[in-house]
Amino acid sequence: MIPFRLIARLDIKGPNLIKGICLEGLRVVGNPGEFALEYYRHGVDEILYMDAVAALYGRNSLGELLRSTARNIFVPITVGGGIRSADDVRAMLRCGADKVAVNTAAIANPALITKIAETFGSQCMVLSIEAKRRASGEGWEAYVENGREHTGLDVVDWARKSVDLGAGEILLTSVDRDGTYKGFDVDLVEAVCRAVPVPVIASGGMGSPEHLVEVVRNSGTSAVAMASALHYRRCTLEDARSSLAEAGVGIVPHNEWPDTAGSDG
């Protein structure tokens, strides 16, 4: 059985950690490196950096942040936003990333999924899906550009296809729930988990430890990405671990990570 993972999601704009609601109305939270180090010290299992404005500039600008993070933090790091080619992936890995999350470019060119998986391994290729429930209430559509642009793709069908093409993991963000503290879209997460044999990271909506337990018990997800709940201390990593343990969920053992602040490696 694969242990459940708690992932800190940090959305970045320029030098700042930012957060919005439904991927809009972005507000500055603080210094992303400092927040990442704090989460590492409290036993987070992975770090997820998402460049929120990469699509605007056509490139990912998190290289220096990645290099700094990799010198001080020793858990897997995933980076997303503006990844458009195998060369982009290579550059991110050289800066210290372990995995890349790809959304827009994968939809525009699905063969990129296979290219990344074959070149760097399927474990490196994380498909990022921004999902919105259809107006009819039946199913979900995949979006790009921070949930602003339609693709016409059904989320579940796209998830299946991406795995067939080589995606080794799916980052599933509910745009409708993002930053609302209303809880995960459990139906969405369950539908994708049932459709694919790879790990699914649930993202968007967590406001309390109870929401975490609910999505774990009812969807089959193997990880959650926590953002606002962590940044604004509505739920600490200790709270999350305690709730999961009480619910009988197998989690990655919490070690006391070394204090590496100021270290060069």
Rank of each mutant, 00 (worst) to 15 (best):
A117D: 13
I47T: 00
W140C: 13
E169C: 15
T119V: 03
Y143S: 07
I170Y: 13
F184M: 15
R177V: 02
V252K: 08
V155F: 01
N146Y: 03
P3V: 05
L26R: 05
E130H: 11
N31F: 10
R134E: 07
I129F: 15
L237D: 11
V163L: 00
H150Y: 01
R234K: 10
F74R: 04
L153Q: 02
R94Y: 14
N146R: 13
E256F: 08
H231E: 04
G152H: 08
G183D: 10
E238L: 02
Y57P: 04
A159I: 05
A191Y: 09
G152D: 10
D187G: 05
P3W: 08
G250E: 15
R241C: 00
I21S: 11
R148K: 15
G80H: 03
V186Y: 06
E190W: 05
V224T: 01
K182S: 11
S219K: 11
V216D: 07
I107H: 14
G207H: 00
I83Q: 05
R133D: 10
R5C: 13
S122Y: 13
T78W: 09
H211L: 02
F74I: 04
S208I: 06
G248R: 04
V44H: 15
R134D: 01
E256V: 13
Q123D: 11
S128P: 00
A55D: 15
Y143Q: 15
P197H: 11
H254V: 11
D154Q: 00
R59N: 09
P110G: 03
E46N: 04
